[in-house]
Design a protein around this nucleic acid. Sequence first.
DNA 1: CACCCGCTCAACCTTTCGATGGATGCCGCT
DNA 2: AGCGGCATCCATCGAAAGGTTGAGCGGGTG
Lengths: 212, 212
Amino acid sequence: MTDPAPIRLLLADDHPVVRAGLRAVLETEPGFSVVADVATAEEAVTLAALPGVDVVLMDLRFGGEMRGSQATAAITGRPGAPRVLVLTTYDTDADILAAIEAGATGYLLKDAPPEELAAAVRAAAAGKSALAPTVALRLMDRMRDPAVALSRRETEVLQLVADGLSNAEASKRLFLSQATVKSHLVHIYAKLGVDSRTAAVAAATARGLIRR
Amino acid sequence: MTDPAPIRLLLADDHPVVRAGLRAVLETEPGFSVVADVATAEEAVTLAALPGVDVVLMDLRFGGEMRGSQATAAITGRPGAPRVLVLTTYDTDADILAAIEAGATGYLLKDAPPEELAAAVRAAAAGKSALAPTVALRLMDRMRDPAVALSRRETEVLQLVADGLSNAEASKRLFLSQATVKSHLVHIYAKLGVDSRTAAVAAATARGLIRR
DNA sequence: CACCCGCTCAACCTTTCGATGGATGCCGCT
DNA sequence: AGCGGCATCCATCGAAAGGTTGAGCGGGTG
């Protein structure tokens, strides 16, 4: 019997060590072929446009400007695009949802064992969604508890607060009244089940609702 | 001419992919031999006690309880201990200093290119200190500007504040008067050049003075 | 010894923050 | 249409949390 066509992979991660590790892990498994690895999200977008790539393994955080979720959107937006499997370190990453909405086929943590990784890649190549259990659980939590979905404006406000701005400063930054900022904060507190700005920031970062 | 004895390595990182990557990168370079890789800090301490290890590559953050800096201290505290080369993702990690004080021979970022990594391992094996440029710069900054060195107590207080506790809550947690907590905060503000708790938390996380 | 620095605390006072209440407009639902 | 839900926006008020000032103690260092 002949070998089935191997799954052709593009690796995108800014850490050379991680790229080498993915290569090592995947090339020992049968049925995979790494066609290229890149260190930036921009390169990933460029190379993913070429034919001959089935699955892109995409990190979420890069040293540079572009975030993995944006790159994912850019790639999946094109017709005949490869599948994108997002791969990151943190199960609390703020833009898990962004990446999935951007069209990622699956989501995996870097601490996954090799078999799980290989299985997820195969699933992605077949067009099936693959979510790491921890991530899936967290997403379920987030879905099941609609309270923890902050609105766009609320997220903006909370991000500024997390950056250390006072209500007055945040209101200027957003061209709002202080009262409005406070109002948003009250809603945020209710959703997060806290009653102070610092606690809200802690809770939101713990749940990956805001950066840093 | 005979080969010189290879440098025997122990890899400690909770990510299988990273372990594989380090293996791949280092085993292609001549003169290295990976004797084992482990997924927890505890295992690293155990295996580092056995003879036959020259250099331990140690991650700072593990999924479990023990932190890499603690493991480093446990390893280097013994006579005839191997060198420990700390390897982490973040140049802003809160316990860079802790790791170095714990006796780490060098400090490297995971986004370092393979040659740099190999060079650092060789330097470590020879007992020479090796610091990644970014890390070294940051350390210099921190040294040169003594304002940003928080005392032990100050760090404790700020960490609790960052976790969302009020002054009253933090004071109970530390068996202190509220006045003392406030006093610490005043000093923290002065050192960080800010004037509110949220700004202090933001500044401190940006500089890697506290976790998360 | 004198000095500096880290840690501790009390009392005062103000500013910011959070609570309350209300308005508007945009959805989807029946 | 009519309804309710939700996101966005704003004003006012009282309180408490937080920030300022000042001060004592002890250990380490020059």
